[in-house]
Computed example of a mutant assay.
Amino acid sequence: MRKFIIVVAKILLTILVLLVVLDWAYTTVYLHSSQRGKVEKVFNSKAENYDVVILGSSRANNHFVPELFENKGLKTFNYGMSGAHLFEASLMLKLMAERNYKIKTVILEADLGLCNEKESDAIAAKFLPYIHHSEVIKDHFSKLENFNEWYYIPFYRYVDFDALIGFREMYQTATDKPTNILDHLGYHPLTSNKPGNMKNDIRALKPIRNKYYEEIKQICKQNNYNLIAVMTPMCTNVKGLDYFAKANQIYPEIHNLENAVQGDHYFSSCGHMNDAGARMFTEVVIEKFFATK
């Protein structure tokens, strides 16, 4: 029995050492990358200086064209991330503040994301390689159900999110395989619309007083960032467009630009404008908020 226990103990110790080594190896790769995605671009950066930073979901990523801001002399980057919630937008802004970014204006797409305070697994996972290297990330994740497993069990987070930060992504990061995520200053243009995509029903969505939106407001106040929160356009054939009025009842300061672009030919899908629509919308935003700058 004693020999058996010793053998089992050695096996367990070997597994633990292996997990620690793998955790260190994967994390080291991510700590030396800034070219594949927006999270590592921010995390592995030093103080940046921007006139305009754009945050939000795909409705930011696909709707704001930094080139048009740059044409007005405004240094801009679109940090919107497809699939992101306000949970991730708040964390990105915290990391920027932690790295002493100088930002004149933050444009936040705050519309459909107001209806929940959940994390987006697909985007939140991108922060997990750095959880032991940032108190900001640790604190932000600390209230989540699986925090203890992610933080205290070596390599667990890489197994749990293997499709997102596991071997394949680690290998592609290590070999500097390029992506298009950082192209066009972070903006991702969409193609023209497809018949059948011009329907949507958002009647089930209910805006709430959102703690992560409140965090974003507080971060901007503390760091002297000018915050412009906006709601972006949807196509005409949407059921439940009163959502935007309900959001304004909770947060009157959010600028409702839902109808700033009219015509389904400006949309790739009902919730996302194509490149022509995004350019038109960006011009509206520039004219409304930056015309005198």
Rank of each mutant, 00 (worst) to 15 (best):
T282V: 10
S268N: 14
F141R: 03
K293G: 05
I228W: 01
A89V: 01
L31T: 05
F141I: 06
A245E: 14
K38L: 09
A247H: 00
V284C: 09
Y266S: 10
I250N: 01
F167G: 02
F127K: 09
Y187F: 14
L182Y: 03
A229Y: 00
K72A: 13
T27N: 01
A110F: 06
L182T: 02
K206S: 04
P66K: 06
K138C: 04
L108F: 08
L182Q: 00
M1K: 14
F167W: 07
H188L: 14
Y79R: 04
E70K: 15
Y151I: 07
K75D: 13
V261N: 05
I131D: 06
K38E: 01
R168C: 01
G80V: 08
H272F: 13
K3W: 07
V7S: 14
Y151S: 02
K221R: 13
E169D: 08
D242L: 03
S57W: 00
T175Q: 03
P154S: 07
I54M: 07
P189Y: 07
L164P: 00
K46H: 14
D23F: 08
F147D: 00
K239L: 06
N256R: 03
G196C: 09
T175S: 11
K293N: 11
K75L: 12
S142D: 09
E215I: 03
V39W: 03
H32I: 10
A97W: 09
V261L: 04
C220K: 01
L182S: 05
N193M: 10
E253I: 00
E67R: 14
A204N: 08
W24A: 13
S120N: 14
L112E: 02
M231E: 09
T292C: 05
I181Q: 12
Y171N: 08
D111M: 06
Y130K: 04
K41H: 12
V7T: 15
A60N: 02
S268D: 10
N200V: 01
Y212S: 01
A245N: 14
P178A: 13
F167A: 11
L114Q: 02
I286K: 05
E98F: 05
K3Y: 10
Y171V: 12
L144A: 02
I137R: 09
F161I: 00
P252V: 04
P189N: 07
A125K: 06
Y158Q: 02
R99A: 01
H188S: 13
V29A: 07
K143F: 13
V17N: 02
I103T: 09
S120Y: 11
I5P: 04
K211M: 06
W24S: 11
A84F: 07
L31A: 03
K104P: 06
P233N: 05
K118M: 13
E169N: 11
E48I: 13
I5N: 08
G240S: 01
N210L: 01
L114C: 08
C115N: 13
L12W: 06
H272L: 13
N62H: 15
A163E: 14
V106A: 07
E258A: 12
D160V: 03
S142N: 10
L86M: 05
Y266D: 06
T27G: 00
D201K: 12
N248L: 10
N62F: 15
N223G: 04
H255G: 01
I11V: 15
V159D: 00
N237G: 00
L16D: 03
D121P: 14
Q249M: 03
F43A: 05
K143R: 13
